[in-house]
């Protein structure tokens, strides 16, 4: 299976990491291409600080609100809340806590796990150059900085999942 990670938000980092890990556990070969904002997932200067924001996410609910009034836990949070100072930090802490409760590893630990399980990970050459990244900052599980064409070559015939 091949995954393309194009987003650098905390909530958009997990899908490919979780599915890739599941695929490895089933004996499936896994290749992950990190491109554009997805490079933040493998950049060790950023991957322990990925953030989750309410802004633009209409599926944002607060399970705890149900204790105040039943039904409130299903209500979509007003979008304006996402723009309040400190709200992104708060939402990020909340999400990290919820993931921890599910025993989901942090993003850096997840990359260690994937590397040990045999995942092949690559950084996108174009965005790597565009964002002026350093090879020393990449997670050691990243095998190389490759072009889109190289990845297409690798992924030929695979199931490709774009995140």
């Amino acid at each position: 299976m091949a995954f393309i990670c194009s987003k650098g938000n905390l909530d958009m980092a997990y899908p490919a990491l979780i599915m890739g890990n599941a695929a490895l556990g089933e004996g499936v070969e896994v290749h992950i291409f990190f491109t554009f904002w997805g490079l933040d997932i493998v950049n060790t200067k950023t991957n322990d600080k990925l953030k989750f924001t309410l802004s633009g996410n209409t599926a944002m609910h607060m399970p705890d609100l149900g204790r105040i009034k039943p039904g409130l836990e299903h209500v979509s949070m007003p979008q304006v809340l996402g723009n309040l100072p400190g709200m992104t930090g708060y939402a990020t802490r909340m999400m990290n806590k919820q993931m921890e409760e599910q025993e989901i590893p942090t993003v850096p630990e997840f990359l260690d796990l994937l590397q040990a399980s045999g995942a092949h990970m690559y950084a996108c050459r174009l965005t790597y150059d565009m964002m002026k990244l350093l090879e020393a900052d990449l997670h050691p599980g990243v095998e190389g900085v490759i072009s889109a064409g190289d990845f297409i070559d690798i992924a030929e015939g695979a199931q490709v999942v774009f995140v």
Binding site: N21, E26, Q102, E103, A116
Partner: peptide
């Protein structure tokens, strides 16, 4: 060590180990 698990039970380590240890098929995602 994860690498050891994959080396000892190649392919589908979680399922092979659950089957051999007489436990139910694992349901956790990670």
């Amino acid at each position: 060590d994860i690498k050891t698990l994959f080396a000892l039970y190649p392919g589908k380590p979680a399922k092979k180990m659950a089957w051999l240890s007489g436990l139910p098929k694992p349901v956790g995602c990670v």
